[in-house]
């Protein structure tokens, strides 16, 4: 599990992520798990996604982390506040 606190600017494949609603560029991050089977099942399969919530308006975007060797599609740049 990845735990990140703080506020981040995010780049996906080298392109800056913007909020789809307010065009904000700073996000809170959480790793989330979506159920791929009925949640009552104990050993259910889950889809792991990175949830990026706009710091200003809280609109959330979900991205799957993909790793190719040492490179990942998501780059987090911590913003000092």
């Amino acid at each position: 599990m990845v735990r990140r606190r703080g506020i981040y600017e995010v780049e996906i494949l080298g392109k800056r992520l913007c909020c789809t609603l307010c065009d904000g560029k700073m996000f809170h991050h959480r790793e989330i798990y979506l159920d791929l089977e009925l949640p009552k099942k104990i050993d259910r399969e889950q889809l792991t996604l990175q949830s990026l919530m706009c710091k200003v308006c809280s609109t959330t975007q979900l991205v799957q982390e993909k790793t190719d060797g040492t490179k990942t599609n998501i780059v987090y740049i911590e913003v000092k506040t």
Binding site: I12, L13, K15, L34, L38, P39, K40, L47, L49, Q61, L62, V63, Q64, E65, K66, N73, I74
Partner: peptide
């Protein structure tokens, strides 16, 4: 305990859902 099924489509290029 009511569940709603929908689709989460992952872009194969950038990973955005």
């Amino acid at each position: 305990d009511v569940f709603f099924v929908d689709y989460t489509a992952i872009c194969l290029k950038c990973g955005c859902a």
